[in-house]
Amino acid sequence: MRNKKLVNYSKYGYLFSIPFILTFLTFTLYPILFTFWIGFTDLTGAGNTNWHFIMSEEAVGGPKPLFDNFVAVLGNGTFQKAFKNTVLIWTLNFIPQMAFALLFTAWFTDRRSKVKGQGIFKILFYMPNIITAATIAILFNVLFGYPKGAVNDIILGLAKAFGVKKDLMLSSPNDWKIAVAYDFNNNGTALKLIVAFVQFYQWYGYTMVNLIAGVIGISPEIFEAAEIDGANRVQTFFKVTLPCIRQILLFVLVTSLIGGLNMFDVPQLYAGEKKANGAVLTLNMFVRSQGLDNRYLYNKAAAASVIMFIVIVILSSILFYVLRDKDEAKLKKLRKQELKALKKGM
């Protein structure tokens, strides 16, 4: 018995972490460092094995300043457009996504009016999130098709029902149809709105389920106390529920931010890089198109992805800072001061 107690178990901590660490080093850290490095080289062209550090004498076109690739990417009009598009589409999707997720969370977790059948609603709302984004993108593309597609058929049906005739001069019924139909997929603004909508469609259920899980985890006594104190629904939600799920809000915000800035599947398959003058070109699509598609500007693609990385780190840190537990931070500070005082006293 005594021998057992003397066994040092700490080595198992290291041992059991080895598979994770080895895989992480090989398949994540090494490629990341390699990406950073490529951003500082002249690596372009498929199958190029003869490439150099950008400041060296052998670099293509002579030595260049250290951050040449980064400056080139930041000054690239297409990159700037991709950046603007990504932020715009993310915002257009994120605000309604959060608003509706919070609204449904408030409704479905309300203790006073138990909503019947909410299980089915939750299951339905979450469903688009598990379906392949590529499939959803193409499905919506066909639905918004021109001149024939479900949405245009609905518009046509409504136009007929209300007797709207857009162009009376058109003689044949087919012409009339085309005059009413709208070519969504070739209009920049429409494309942005649709892609934002598809993102919303796929993610509001996910956000809602996360938030509901957080609310379920709150101790019921807190709500009872709020009720006894006479707080109404709205007050309870904003003053009790939301502060209690701060951790989950942070998780949802950060994952949505990272997912949003990495947006790729839907805009790529819905419209592609060039449709309507690059109306839905996102940062990830820019990286891919620089690195592939017969361009093979690997150094520029690497620089662009490093810039994305830096933007995400900055924005995540801001979120962490804003949503940090202020009381806990204060307590920690106080404790530190007390310790210092104690030490001085001694």
């Binding site: 178990y9 901590g13 990406t35 490095w37 940062l283 690195g291 690497a302 490093v306 990385f309 995540s316």
Partner: peptide, 29 residues
């Protein structure tokens, strides 16, 4: 389950790399 020296550092690292976007590995990979 185990107490080991680098445990906290390792744990913090895992939380940190959760934030790393996939794209930044792409070109190198």
């Amino acid at each position: 389950a185990y107490e080991w020296k680098l445990r906290d550092a390792f744990n913090n690292m895992i939380v940190g790399i959760m934030m790393v976007p996939g794209t930044v590995t792409t070109i190198g990979f």
